[in-house]
Computed example of a mutant assay.
Amino acid sequence: MSIDKVNAIIGKEFDEIMKNKYILGSLVAVPLLFSLLLPASLIAPAVFYPEAYLDANETSYIATALGKSQEALISFFMNAVIPFFMMLPAILPTIVASYSIIGEKKNRTLEPLLAAPVSVYDILAGKALSAIIPALAATWISAILFCVITGAITYTGLHRIIFPDIAVWLLGMLVLAPLLAFMGIMIAIIVSSRVNDPRVAQQISAVLVVPIMSLFIGQMAGFVLIDLKVMVGAAMLILALDAVVLILGKSMFDREEILTRWK
């Protein structure tokens, strides 16, 4: 694998991303929506109207588990929203990659790239990194904005800043997010090798969101508590799945097959 060749492919892909308003809009709008909507819908009510949660029959299990503690309730919601930010690196790379790969198939520009003196690994690495880098950047910026806005809300309502579980969030953002981003891009490559519509590729790849959001639903329903053990277990599982999709992605991205079958 050549770093110079990979960098050249990344530069080419970034140029295409900057020209695509749909991709740019998705990279900006979706993370911004999460960083604004989640504090407003979950954190703010827990700060200013905690009794709405602690006294409600529907959430009585939360009150029992947290001992009627407002600060514990806020921390509970901070951990509960982690799956939303883990969802971003799973979805955003598929948007970039599906348009990149399928766009090249439609424009017949993939064949010249394959004919160039670059290896399949150079192409895969360049396309993967060009999708993962902006997706992770958007995810991390969104998470930082969420923490800043949450801190401002807790300081305004309680006159002190309540921070999320640092270990859980760091593991989620620095380990799970890259692993999920890699899985998202490899699934996009696998799906894109069999379809010619980027929207179809995105819809099929979106199945990855289901197990991620099950963590949020499980936490809110009282079936699971998102903590360090859960996050470590999830990281180990996703790492194993990444190895599987890497093998599948490499087998799908075959030079001769692409030239003869990717029509």
Rank of each mutant, 00 (worst) to 15 (best):
L136T: 08
M183G: 13
G126K: 09
L145N: 12
Y155K: 10
S205M: 05
A167M: 11
A188W: 10
V209Y: 03
A135C: 10
A125E: 00
A206E: 06
L129N: 04
I132W: 07
T139L: 02
F163Y: 14
V191F: 07
L170H: 09
S192Q: 08
I144N: 04
H159I: 02
T139Q: 06
L129Y: 12
V148K: 04
V168Y: 06
A135I: 08
A206D: 12
D165K: 02
I187Y: 10
R199P: 00
M183R: 13
Y121A: 13
V210K: 05
V168Q: 04
P178H: 06
V210S: 13
D122S: 14
I162E: 01
S205Y: 04
T154G: 02
A135W: 09
M186Y: 12
T150C: 10
V148C: 04
I187V: 15
I123C: 07
F146R: 02
V168N: 06
T156S: 15
I132D: 06
V168A: 14
F146D: 04
A206P: 05
A167E: 13
S119Y: 04
V200N: 01
I190K: 03
A131R: 11
S119F: 06
I132L: 11
I144G: 13
A206V: 01
V210H: 07
S193V: 01
V191E: 12
G184D: 09
S193C: 15
I153D: 00
A143H: 04
A128G: 12
